[in-house]
């Protein structure tokens, strides 16, 4: 009757309470601290429902009144990427993290931490703007002429579509980057008197020096294989071979192991790696 048996959720061996340890931080640059909570166990619970209970209780396990833990969520079905955090040491979506399987990993408690590679805004909320900036850097879009009606798009056969579709499922959750040993946190503090725009520009300049990460590389592969998207393939490869480009990848392959959407990231990295090398040789010869 000790450890819970997640294989059989109706088994009476379930705990009545779930212990939760949350790494909190009141704001950027503030110290982080652990806080313990306890919530009633329910069947089929996920981490979101745990956090909802914590928010409704608004007190720690020792009865201390505290502000609810801040966290992000959206779809609650693992398609929006909002609710990403580090749960029991592994980055993943809290909506699809079922309490039963977490307790199987560690029966005593569930540990929640914010993502590691993005600056904390508050508690479990982080600033992932760098990820979206990378998509801008890499021109991750199809450059169409107009949104007016020009007939159907280019024909794409089924095998091609089946290559592209998995890549188009990336929800920019950031897991692949959070787990990547080559992806380092970039955190700036706002300077006194700095305007929004100045701060924004300084952040973007810093982002441009850092690794773009696996997901954006995979987007380059996606768009460079689209018949229209191809037309700016060179620009994307230029960006991919600049500072922080594909070369930073050290093939640790954590990205592909943690991606919740099973995106073949290492395949994309290999394809992009080859294209980038050929491209830079071509550039060298043509210059």
């Amino acid at each position: 009757m000790s450890a819970p048996t997640p294989a059989n959720p109706s088994s009476p061996a379930h705990p009545t309470k779930v212990n939760v340890r949350v790494l909190r931080q009141d704001g950027p640059g503030q110290p982080a601290y652990w806080e313990r909570h306890q919530v009633d166990y329910e069947e089929n619970m996920n981490v979101i429902s745990v956090l909802q209970k914590i928010a409704a209780q608004a007190q720690t396990v020792d009865g201390k009144k505290v502000a609810p833990v801040a966290w992000e969520c959206g779809c609650l079905e693992e398609v929006c990427g909002s609710c990403t955090m580090v749960i029991n040491g592994r980055v993943r979506q809290s909506c699809s993290a079922l309490v039963d399987s977490l307790l199987a990993e560690n029966a005593t408690e569930i540990e929640l931490r914010p993502m590691e590679k993005y600056p904390v805004i508050r508690d479990l909320v982080v600033d992932r703007s760098r990820l979206f900036h990378a998509l801008k850097r890499l021109q991750a879009w199809v450059p169409v002429d107009t949104y007016g009606h020009l007939g159907p798009g280019p024909r794409i056969n089924r095998p091609q579509q089946e290559e592209m579709y998995p890549l188009s499922k990336c929800m920019s959750c950031g897991c692949c980057m959070d787990a990547c040993p080559q992806y380092q946190k970039i955190e700036l503090q706002r300077r006194p008197g700095e305007s929004d725009e100045q701060y924004q520009r300084r952040k973007e300049a810093a982002y441009e020096q850092g690794f773009v990460g696996a997901a954006p590389i995979s987007q380059v592969v996606l768009f460079n294989s689209h018949p229209t998207g191809k037309s700016i393939a060179d620009g994307r490869l230029d960006a991919l071979t600049e500072t922080g480009g594909i070369q930073v990848c050290g093939n640790a392959q954590n990205c592909v192991a943690v991606c919740p959407k099973d995106i073949p990231l290492t395949k994309s990295i290999a394809r992009a790696g080859r294209a980038a090398t050929l491209h830079s040789i071509k550039r060298f010869l043509e210059k």
Partner: peptide, 23 residues
């Protein structure tokens, strides 16, 4: 290069990650 990365094999115990760290 080594200094530009930060191994995390103890947290993410995947084979490829071990290989990365060992490299």
């Amino acid at each position: 290069i080594i200094r530009s990365g930060q191994s995390n094999h103890s947290q993410y115990r995947f084979t490829a990650n071990w290989r990365y760290t060992l490299q």
